[in-house]
Simulated scan of single mutants.
Amino acid sequence: MLIFRQNHAARGEQRPYVAPIEEATPATAPRHRVKRNSLAGPPPTPAKAWNYSAPVLLEVERWLKQHNLSAAKFGRQAVGDPNLVSDLRGGRDPSSKVVARIRAFMAKGGDHD
């Protein structure tokens, strides 16, 4: 089933007005304004719902420190992708084949064929 969004501007029509939903609080309830201390800094940012990193990323980071190799060079030599490590740091979940190639490369000591 396809769902199409209506593009009122493209058709030259005005968008229908939808009234905002009013709060369920009674009109007699007092509304208090919370004062923030201007020296306190910005409000804290909420934590992410999940913080996942691929298990192989920890092994790669440790290996990079031990062998003094750049992340781009490691990714290019291990799997042919210079963005591999930065993508892993950003949350990429590698396939089992890619993980096997990474671990095989590290097991050889970084010798590229």
Rank of each mutant, 00 (worst) to 15 (best):
P16E: 07
Y17W: 07
Y17F: 10
V18K: 04
V18F: 00
A19H: 03
A19S: 05
A19W: 00
A19Y: 00
I21C: 00
I21F: 01
E22I: 11
E22R: 10
E22F: 02
E22Q: 07
E22V: 05
A24Q: 06
A24E: 05
A24L: 06
A24G: 01
T25M: 00
P26S: 11
P26Y: 02
P26H: 03
A27I: 07
A27C: 02
T28P: 01
T28V: 05
T28C: 03
A29Q: 11
A29K: 13
A29N: 03
P30G: 04
P30Y: 04
P30H: 06
P30E: 07
R31D: 11
R31G: 08
R31P: 03
R31S: 15
H32N: 05
H32L: 07
R33D: 13
K35H: 11
K35W: 06
K35Q: 14
R36Y: 15
N37M: 06
L39Q: 13
L39N: 14
L39C: 01
A40T: 09
A40I: 12
G41L: 13
G41R: 07
P42F: 04
P42W: 03
P42E: 10
P42T: 08
P43H: 11
P43M: 04
P43E: 05
P43G: 05
P43V: 12
P44W: 07
P44C: 12
P44F: 11
P44I: 14
T45H: 00
T45W: 01
T45D: 02
T45R: 05
T45I: 11
T45Q: 11
T45K: 10
P46H: 01
P46G: 02
P46E: 07
A47K: 08
K48Q: 13
K48R: 14
K48W: 10
K48E: 12
A49L: 12
A49R: 12
N51H: 10
N51P: 00
N51W: 04
Y52P: 02
Y52S: 03
Y52M: 06
Y52N: 04
S53W: 01
S53P: 00
A54V: 00
A54C: 01
P55M: 04
V56P: 04
V56R: 03
L57Q: 08
L58K: 12
E59T: 02
E59A: 08
E59V: 06
V60Q: 06
E61M: 12
E61A: 06
E61Y: 03
R62A: 14
W63R: 14
W63G: 13
W63F: 14
L64M: 09
L64N: 13
L64Q: 01
L64F: 08
L64P: 02
K65Q: 14
K65E: 15
Q66D: 12
H67F: 09
H67Y: 08
H67D: 00
N68K: 06
N68S: 09
L69H: 02
L69A: 14
L69Y: 08
S70L: 09
A71S: 14
A71D: 13
A71V: 00
A71P: 05
A71G: 07
A71Q: 15
A72H: 07
A72Y: 01
A72G: 12
A72S: 14
K73G: 03
K73M: 08
K73C: 04
F74G: 06
F74V: 08
G75Q: 12
G75I: 13
G75N: 07
R76T: 13
R76S: 12
Q77S: 11
Q77N: 15
A78L: 13
A78W: 08
A78S: 13
A78G: 03
